[in-house]
Design a protein around this nucleic acid. Structure first.
Length: 618
DNA sequence: GTTCCTATCT
DNA sequence: AAGATAGGAA
């Protein structure tokens, strides 16, 4: 049984896992111990486990394996190589929206931390009350299965999940109370006029056929409050990356606005924002599909290659698409697509494949990082400061504007989410590293349709809006209780071919690999597909590297043998913590909680190894 | 009643 | 071009 399953399966104990990152070993140990000692009250129902790592690299390495099991990250600000905020950003890029609290003796960093999306800031030295807050925050995150924020209104051990909030630009702060009156989860813009922040009745909204111009022309209430505070959201690179991660996580064919929004967990995003973006995204995909269909008819269709629009072509993408296109993304493809870059794969959606390519294109504006207006700090009865903000920074309009197809600047590993990483569930360590949600999503097996598009049916169905039934992942909290019944039936069907589906989605350049077409056909009928071992290996490596995602490789290298480590139940009453950064751990560190499977030092070594591989490819 | 999707608007 | 909104439909 996969580790993650067992991890949650042990009992109904709500396990809270906090990763503490600090280069000061003394502080790290003290902090970790004190945090662990916070498992107070009722240890039979809750338990806190601290994963202590000494630097950002180890933190990232650990997350690559244990992303799903870590509920909260508390990091020092000043650390070698990468400071806490840089770590936070990297975490967001690689793993999505995980709650991060920054701590530092330099209180000047509070503002920066919160601006940059940290969930909270704790000044050092840390008081006991802060520790409690951390614990509560972790607990809340765990229960919520998502980032949490506290506000002045709800700091009494209550919480509001971020998606329920609408990000307000600072000028809108005085609307906060008004908007908060209604806490319907993920408000529909039919109820919430997002252009002015005013709640209107659903019926009125829907029946209002006279659209109000942006900024609201004299609509009584909102104009009184804040005229023209239309906050048209801008899909910045980070935001878009998160969007892509969500889609890849959920599965292309199952990605609906609500689920995407949940995954993204960005405070100021509404479902409508996502829906709108999704619509554009689908339009783009459709276009690409059409293009590829046209081109595929002119190219031999063979195995894997057949799923790839222009597998052998190394010409710039725009060579295939002339300026005759008048569509917005056609223009993008021609003029500024990332894939216009010669030598890169063709027909690849930047939407689908955030690349690890180091080439920098237009610089993503970072000015928003310094916008003091992007958040509103709140003291919550302690020194722990929490922003009314999610993990992404609000980017004012016209900043960071970019096409779907524009590259992400300076992204080196932005989409390296583990295959199968799940925000709420278990899958990272299920032995395969696959995303269970997407396992059966994309077969890429429909290439035998004569004369038709070679796109996978996953994509086709997605484009056709053939959403398959989506089964929401229960939150870990729920899982803790219901885990016993959780099966991963797809796991037995796990095959590289499932990955191919994803890869197809990712549209990586896989021209160097070929599949036995007959084998592929067979797989179509049996839904059981095995690649030749050598091919599989190659593919694994290739995909892992190409997609900047080598977790898959790592997790299959015996590092985390779930069977052997899973049954080591964290001792509820243990007062220990695992100083996992040290091999010469103190005795109490390994008494009960066996984190050895993710020995950060080993991970760091692998990281080095893979990093060198990865860099070597560039 | 909510969410999805598409068309349409800005 | 990019995002918001309306309204039918599931």
């Amino acid at each position: 049984m996969a580790f993650a399953q067992v991890f949650y399966n042990q009992s109904s104990v709500l396990r809270i896992n906090v990763m503490v990152v600090d280069d000061d070993p003394v502080f790290l140990q003290i902090m970790s111990r004190r945090l662990e000692n916070l498992k107070y009250r009722d240890p039979s129902t809750m338990e806190i486990t601290v994963i202590a790592v000494k630097d950002s690299r180890q933190a990232l390495s650990t997350l690559k394996i244990e992303r799903n099991n870590i509920d909260l990250i508390v990091t020092d600000y000043y650390m070698p190589d990468m400071n806490g905020l840089q770590l936070k950003k990297q975490i967001t890029r690689e793993f999505g929206n995980l709650p991060v609290i920054v701590m530092s003796s330099d209180t000047d960093k509070e503002h920066e931390s919160l601006t940059c999306g940290a969930m909270g800031f704790i000044p050092k030295p840390i008081k006991a009350t802060e520790l409690t807050k951390i614990y509560q925050l972790a607990l809340t995150c765990k229960r919520n299965g998502k980032s949490t924020l506290w506000t002045e209104n709800n700091h009494n051990d209550t919480y509001v999940s971020i998606p329920q909030q609408i990000q307000l630009v600072p000028e809108q702060d005085n609307l906060m109370m008004t908007k908060k009156k209604k806490f319907s989860p993920i408000p529909d813009s039919r109820s919430m006029n997002s252009s002015n922040g005013t709640c209107v009745s659903t019926d009125a909204s829907r029946k209002n056929k006279n659209r109000k111009p942006n900024g609201g022309s004299g609509d009584d209430f909102e104009s009184l409050s804040q005229p023209s505070m239309k906050s048209k959201i801008t899909w910045t690179d980070d935001l878009h990356d998160l969007f892509l991660q969500a889609i890849r996580h959920i599965g292309l064919d199952k990605a609906v606005p609500k689920k995407i929004l949940e995954f993204m967990n960005v405070s100021y995003l509404t479902r409508e924002n996502v829906a709108s973006h999704l619509q554009k995204y689908r339009q783009f995909l459709r276009k690409v599909a059409e293009r590829s269909s046209l081109c595929s008819n002119m190219l031999p269709s063979n195995g894997i290659d057949s799923i790839y629009p222009y597998p052998h072509t190394r010409e710039p993408y725009y060579n295939n698409y002339t300026s005759s296109s008048s569509s917005w993304y056609g223009t993008s493809l021609n003029n500024r697509s990332f894939y216009s870059k010669p030598g890169h794969g063709l027909g690849q959606s930047r939407l689908l494949s955030n690349t690890s390519d180091p080439v920098c294109f237009s610089q993503m504006p970072h000015s928003y990082m310094n916008q003091s207006s992007t958040y509103d700090t709140h003291r919550i009865g302690s020194n722990l400061t929490l922003p009314i903000q999610s993990n992404l920074n609000y980017s004012s309009q016209n900043e960071g504007r970019r096409s779907f197809l524009e590259p992400t600047a300076n992204k080196t590993s932005q989409t390296s989410q583990a295959l199968g990483f799940e925000q709420h569930g278990l899958s990272a360590i299920n032995g395969s590293g696959f995303n269970n949600n997407t396992l059966i999503s994309y077969g890429s097996l429909t290439t035998h349709q004569p004369g038709s598009s070679n796109f996978s049916y996953g994509l086709q169905s997605f484009l056709n809006n053939e959403n398959t039934a989506y089964e929401p992942q229960p939150h870990p909290h729920a899982q803790a209780a219901a885990q016993k019944n959780i099966e991963i039936p797809q796991q037995e069907n796990l095959s590289l071919f499932d990955e191919l589906g994803n890869i197809n989605e990712l549209l990586c350049d896989i021209s160097n690999f070929e599949l036995d077409h007959n084998k592929q056909q067979e797989a179509v009928s049996t839904n059981q597909f095995e690649l030749p071992a050598n091919v599989s290996t190659e593919m694994n490596q290739f995909f892992s590297l190409e997609d900047d995602d080598w977790t898959f490789v790592n997790t299959n290298q015996g590092h985390s043998n779930g069977e052997t480590t899973n049954n080591v139940a964290p001792e509820t009453n243990s007062q220990t913590f695992n100083m996992s950064t040290n091999h010469n751990q103190e005795q109490d560190a390994q008494d009960f909680v066996d984190w050895s499977f993710l020995n950060p030092e080993d991970l760091a070594n692998e990281y080095d190894f893979m990093d060198s591989l990865f860099n070597g490819m560039n």
